[in-house]
């Protein structure tokens, strides 16, 4: 049997396995650390920073930081809650997120996080950047207005689909998700059955002809806030 480690999250002792990340260990113990770019089926990359916790005094992204015996971790502190709220606000204003007519509404992890944090409107001014919509593909749409650069699609395509449909291009505020084709998504080997078509936390990559299929009231986050499944110990 593998040796067990003990870490402390907000004063609660948590058992962890060697090699686990802080995020995995917390999930296992029913402690929710908010996150966006992390996904259980993908290698973590720590790009959204929402899961940042304080480890022995230093900020670290819980999704990439491996556990070590005796670690003391702060998660649910007023300082971190404010920083996380600020990050969520940043993601809203750097893109063009119109929840009221976005078909991801109710199933969107960014929107759900905002609700969990009690955000009704971002505190920062909207940047209203000009972004493209790539509707070239017969079955999948790419709406860059809603992209938060979490690179889940990049990883899913490489790690789960054995392809290389997406990659980050540009840098800084101009950074965006590029596609592996001459011009747009239709020029790639993207398939609607790819995991990459399904893994976007927001409404950037969406499947055509299934929009608004789930009625209001039955959507993923209509009844319980995001993270409840972890806090209730139902997370797999």
């Amino acid at each position: 049997m593998a040796e067990k480690l003990t870490i402390t999250i907000d004063g609660v002792e948590v058992q962890a396995q060697p090699g686990q990340t802080i995020l995995d260990a917390a999930d296992g113990a029913g402690i929710y650390i908010p996150r966006l770019c992390a996904h259980p089926d993908l290698k973590p990359i720590g790009s959204c920073r929402v899961c940042t916790v304080i480890v022995d005094g230093r900020p670290q992204a819980a999704c990439v930081k491996p556990v070590a015996d005796g670690m003391t971790i702060e998660n649910n502190t007023p300082e971190l809650l404010e920083h996380r709220r600020n990050l969520i606000d940043m993601m809203f204003v750097e893109g063009n997120h119109f929840c009221m007519f976005c078909e991801k509404s109710g199933n969107c992890e960014l929107q759900a996080l905002a609700y969990r944090f009690g955000i009704s409107a971002p505190q920062y001014p909207f940047q209203f950047p000009a972004k493209d919509v790539d509707a070239s593909h017969p079955d999948v749409m790419l709406d860059h207005n809603r992209c938060i650069m979490c690179a889940r699609c990049v990883r899913a395509s490489q790690e789960l689909d054995g392809k290389n449909v997406f990659q980050s291009i540009g840098r800084g505020f101009e950074r965006k998700i590029g596609v592996n084709g001459e011009r747009d998504l239709a020029d790639t080997d993207m398939d609607v059955k790819d995991r990459a078509a399904d893994i976007c936390p927001v409404g950037c990559i969406i499947k055509k002809r299934v929009g608004f299929e789930i009625p209001v009231g039955e959507r993923k986050y209509d009844h319980k806030p995001i993270g409840s499944e972890i806090e209730e110990g139902e997370y797999v």
Binding site: E94, S168, F173
Partner: peptide, 18 residues
Amino acid sequence: FVDESCGYCVPCRVGNVL
């Protein structure tokens, strides 16, 4: 810093612009 941020993480990509 706005010019030189790689844009990988949210706080540096957006925070500096704001």
